[in-house]
């Protein structure tokens, strides 16, 4: 185990031949993906193609039936035991998760805590920072997402765009090696999408590893180093945005893009 040494440095994420199914329904059918440090990867695809499940497998919110995920070479949620994989205890998995930021479609802020406490809670609870340092960091991060004046508010007193920016600050507070975004703008009114995308764009420029599931094709073209197109639980095609978005090789990709563009 090399736990605790990755903070603050952009991480490599490797997904190896991941299969996931619920009963007879196959959600992921052998996904391989490598995300290099500092790279911004945007995952596109029709609904039900397994994009969100893939993200949730990366931070082990979902357990893959076959295959595994590693962060900087360290297996997530499992350990090697001879030539087999054994599940780790929940405590170790929680520690691993604290190095992977996750931003939800529905924000999932803690409604009974103030904005400041939402951001400061995780570094204190996981023992990474003392209370005073955590509050200082939370203020700094909230300033970075443009919400320095909202520290004392409760989440439900904020707009959707503001809530999502708090959620991003909350994910950043653990100084994760990679941040996963699960359709971060899908629950927002159109005029609020821009403020959230601006914050994500700012992060992309700062060299953090990002994996983003989104339907914003224009945004993907603008910030992605790589675009991954998924359908039916598989990666159909991947490459730089200019290649995948403008000159797709696969029929399925062409078909999807012709519908959404």
């Amino acid at each position: 185990m090399t736990a605790g040494t990755l903070d603050d440095t952009a991480a490599t994420v490797e997904v190896h031949d991941v299969h996931k199914w619920y009963g007879a329904h196959r959600v992921l059918n052998g996904v391989d993906l490598t995300v290099r440090p500092g790279e911004v990867t945007v995952i596109l695809g029709p609904s039900g193609s397994g994009k969100s499940t893939l993200l949730r497998v990366i931070n082990h919110l979902e357990k893959p039936e076959i295959g595994h995920v590693s962060l900087n070479g360290e297996l997530i949620g499992v350990r090697r035991h001879g030539d087999r994989l054994k599940e780790l205890s929940e405590r170790v998995i929680l520690t691993q998760r604290s190095r992977i930021g996750f931003v939800f479609q529905n924000f999932n802020l803690f409604p009974h805590l103030t904005v400041l406490d939402n951001v400061a809670a995780a570094p204190v609870a996981t023992g990474k920072l003392g209370k005073a340092q955590a509050l200082e960091l939370a203020r700094e991060l909230l300033g970075r997402v443009g919400l320095a004046d909202k520290v004392a508010a409760y989440p439900r007193q904020l707009s959707g765009g503001q809530q999502q920016r708090v959620a991003i600050a909350r994910a950043l507070a653990l100084r994760p090696g990679v941040i996963l975004f699960d359709e971060p703008t899908s629950a927002l009114d159109p005029e609020l999408v821009g403020e959230v995308l601006a914050v994500i764009k700012d992060l992309a420029g700062s060299g953090t590893t990002l994996v983003i599931v989104t339907h914003e094709i224009g945004f993907a073209r603008e910030i992605a180093d790589r675009v991954v197109f998924m359908d039916d639980g598989r990666i159909v095609e991947q490459g730089p945005p200019a290649e995948v978005l403008d000159h797709p090789k696969q029929e399925r990709t062409k078909d999807f893009l012709s519908k959404v563009l």
Binding site: L61, L94, S98, F102, N106, N108, A122, T126
Partner: peptide, 13 residues
């Protein structure tokens, strides 16, 4: 979503 967010942040059980 509250359980998921708490898990995703790695908060102790």
């Amino acid at each position: 979503g509250q359980h998921e967010a708490a898990s995703a942040l790695g908060l102790p059980k």
